Simulated assay, not measured.
Amino acid sequence: SRFPPEMMQEAELCFPEFFNSSCKRLTLPHFEVVLMYIVLSSIAVLTAFLNLLVIISISHFRQLHTPTNLLLLSLAISDFSVGLLLFFQTALIDGCWLLGDIMCTVYQYLAYVITSASIGTMVLISFDRYVAICYPLHYSTKITQGRVKVCIFLCWMCSWVFQSLILIENLKQPGKYNSCIGECAFVISYIAGYADLAFSFIVPISVIVVLYLRVFVVAVSQSRATRSHVAAVSLRHSVTAKASQLKAAKTLGLVVLVFLLCMCPYYCVALSGEGSAMSASSAAFVICLFFFNSCLNPIIYAFFYPWFRKSIKLIFTLQIFHHDSCDTSM
């Protein structure tokens, strides 16, 4: 080797100038590191860009200002934030956090809040579909834009407050649980961990599953009614009126299903009792799954929502800058 052993040992440290207290850098093949940087950066850019299209679409066009779309807007904002957070995750590929303890705390805290807000938004989406399918005659009076905006605001505020209480020790003293310089570790107590597990996963996921099971049962019964020759005429009219709502329920059901599949691994680890301490590097796989889900949502919209495809066309052709473009029929 061209380097003496002392220099080789220093090269493996995150901060060679702090020889006795620096964390060790992960020894990964150069090709693997470059590939991970490219993949993570691409997902980050794609996630932020696609969700920005959703945010612009729903915010700009007045016809899209429906209660359901306001919930999708809230979800897109959290997904857009996930895309931005992914750029921080690229800093942990070699196992070294170079941005300091405060930025580590901000990064981890935002990740917790966004995750909690996303799950809360999913509960609201499930409830919206439940009312639309099971109580269609009361939907327009029960689910209004004003009430949905209040629910979204409360969802985000509760996420901020709840996660602040859960992570209070980490927020008081950033870097408190780091064992060496260059680490980005978060530790929460068992009580806080179980509280987070209950209120950020078990309770909301149970509500989502119960609501969508109810929606599924009603959808199946209505589908059978349309095929029955002895079905009442009024029932047929009711089913016809709910056709678009059923389609929306299927699309949003797919969004919820993908969300659950991407979020369950972390909470399954928590349920198995692997511990409440998790460094950012060891949680990379779980976080990347969450990021990948955020990238998938706009793609699902593009496949199932004609209004999203039309709005993308108007955005790319710069027609949204035309006078009264916000009143375009979608």
Rank of each mutant, 00 (worst) to 15 (best):
G120S: 05
G120H: 10
G120Y: 13
G120N: 05
T121E: 11
T121Y: 10
I125A: 04
I125N: 04
I125V: 14
S126A: 14
S126G: 03
S126Y: 08
F127I: 04
D128S: 06
D128R: 00
R129D: 02
R129T: 02
R129W: 01
Y130V: 00
Y130A: 02
V131F: 02
A132D: 04
I133L: 09
I133R: 03
I133C: 06
C134Y: 00
C134V: 07
Y135A: 09
Y135I: 03
Y135Q: 10
P136S: 05
L137N: 12
L137V: 08
L137G: 12
L137M: 08
L137F: 04
H138K: 10
H138A: 11
Y139F: 12
S140I: 07
S140H: 11
T141S: 15
T141I: 04
K142Y: 07
K142M: 11
K142V: 13
K142R: 11
K142C: 10
I143N: 03
I143W: 01
T144P: 06
T144S: 15
Q145N: 15
Q145W: 01
G146P: 07
G146W: 07
G146N: 13
R147W: 04
R147N: 09
V148C: 00
V148L: 02
K149P: 01
K149R: 15
K149W: 10
K149M: 11
C151H: 06
I152D: 02
I152F: 08
F153Y: 15
F153G: 12
L154G: 03
C155Y: 04
C155M: 11
W156Y: 15
W156E: 06
W156A: 13
M157I: 15
C158D: 00
C158I: 06
C158Y: 09
C158E: 01
W160D: 02
W160Q: 07
V161Y: 12
V161L: 12
V161H: 07
V161P: 13
V161G: 04
F162V: 00
F162C: 00
F162M: 02
Q163F: 08
S164L: 03
S164G: 14
S164M: 05
L165R: 10
L165I: 10
L165T: 06
L165K: 11
I166T: 09
I166V: 14
I166P: 13
L167D: 08
L167G: 09
L167N: 14
I168Q: 13
I168S: 15
I168Y: 13
E169A: 14
E169Q: 15
N170C: 14
K172Y: 08
K172C: 08
K172N: 10
K172F: 08
K172A: 10
